[in-house]
Design a protein around this nucleic acid. Structure first.
Lengths: 221, 221
DNA sequence: TCTATACTTTTGGGTAGTCGAAATTCAGGC
DNA sequence: GCCTGAATTTCGACTACCCAAAAGTATAGA
């Protein structure tokens, strides 16, 4: 059974890999994401490679093997189900569940996680709109446009947010930009680094490009 | 912040101390309870003593200090609230929640545990009848008679069981001897090592002294 | 009083994970 | 082709656990 440290490394690599499925994941990215020294990552990558969980190319980076990927997906499944459980059942705020799930994902048994899944009605996405892998590790990967790419002046629905930080989520909460919210992008001004939104209620709100790129939408039906 | 290993040692010592509040807790008991080598316990006791969590008397044993006791009570609170939560909210079997709680007690945040407490209506006992310390670490210690000490032929109610092992709990479940169940002790035969019970429904069942000593009752009102 | 035995402590050693700093490698610009 | 800067790897060292086995201690019974 993998230690919780190993689970953290695998999950982190999976997430980094998803940003750019072609490339190998560099030591630098992992070391930054997990806040450990670069040398520590190199050492860990060697032992994970020895366990057959990933392929390690010295000076280039790593890529998960099938078994490593499978394991990482199970951790991700636990993480996201727990987040949804904390929001839906425990009534916690979605801006505080990420760090809580970060701990719990290593402690819950398979039995308990399946019970949560059942209670939640086998959901397909967590409170941030991230897809939940099923019990066999299958995920539906959909690429959504962000507020930077979507059509202008057309009603869209927020379906996913790409930043778990407390501050960002609290902003979205306050401005009613959570998954499910409806809005339209009125204008984009590259020079001003500004994306102007009109919310469902008619209120207007402006985001910077950086923040806008972290909100993903789909056409409102 | 104490590691989960330290929390396990403290909880274990608290529990052993409760069996015999006068005596010091020996290395042997701790080593047996936690399934670690005796030398490992001695080493850990020295570091815990250095941290001011317990008093260590070489060749005699240890006793928790106030701060050690406080910490242990918080772990115990988490453990017992989690057990009750798993039974009441998650619908798990009481014979399987102990080991699950053993992991979760080190992972849940204070925030989440208080949320559970609230959802459960600030309960005073876990599914086995063990008292739940309050948020300040206060517990009501009540000494109850077991099926070995209680009056004969008088209606009593099971209120606490002193063995968390799966097999024992499954037996109690099957025989309807869970906390809340009503029964009478008909006879005790020391030579035969037998305690004869008459259950509420009228059925009769016989336990050995060893098992009978692990079921605690109070007079039925 | 002495000793057998059960318990405790000490010692030496091992694994997992971490860091800081020195040494190495790679890739882009000249 | 060489140099430089960034990334990577290597190295020595540390903490927190853990074990097995040798050595020491306490005590109950002869």
């Amino acid at each position: 059974m993998p230690t919780s440290t190993v689970e953290d490394y695998l999950k982190c690599i999976l997430l980094e890999q998803q940003r750019d499925p072609e490339a190998l994941v560099s030591m630098r990215r992992i070391s930054a994401a997990l806040a450990v020294a670069p040398g520590t990552v190199t050492a860990m990558m060697k032992t994970l490679a020895d366990s057959g969980l990933l392929a390690y190319e010295p000076y280039s980076g790593v890529r998960l093997t099938d078994s490593g990927r499978q394991l990482a997906l199970h951790v991700l499944r636990r993480h996201r189900l727990i987040e949804l459980f904390l929001v839906k059942v425990m009534g916690m705020d979605w801006s505080e569940v990420h760090s809580e799930a970060e701990e719990l994902e290593h402690a819950v048994s398979d039995r308990l996680i399946e019970r949560m899944d059942e209670m939640l009605g086998y959901p397909s996405a967590d409170p941030h709109g991230d897809p939940i892998p099923d019990v066999h590790g299958l995920v539906e990967e959909t690429v959504l446009p962000s507020l930077l790419d979507c059509e202008l002046k057309v009603p869209v629905k927020v379906t996913r947010v790409g930043d778990q930080s407390r501050e960002f989520l609290q902003l979205l909460e306050k401005r009613d930009l959570k998954p499910g919210s409806l809005l339209r992008v009125e204008t984009r001004d590259e020079a001003a680094d500004a994306v102007e939104l009109r919310l469902d209620a008619g209120k207007r709100f402006t985001l910077g490009f950086r923040a806008a790129s972290k909100i993903f939408v789909e056409r409102a039906t």
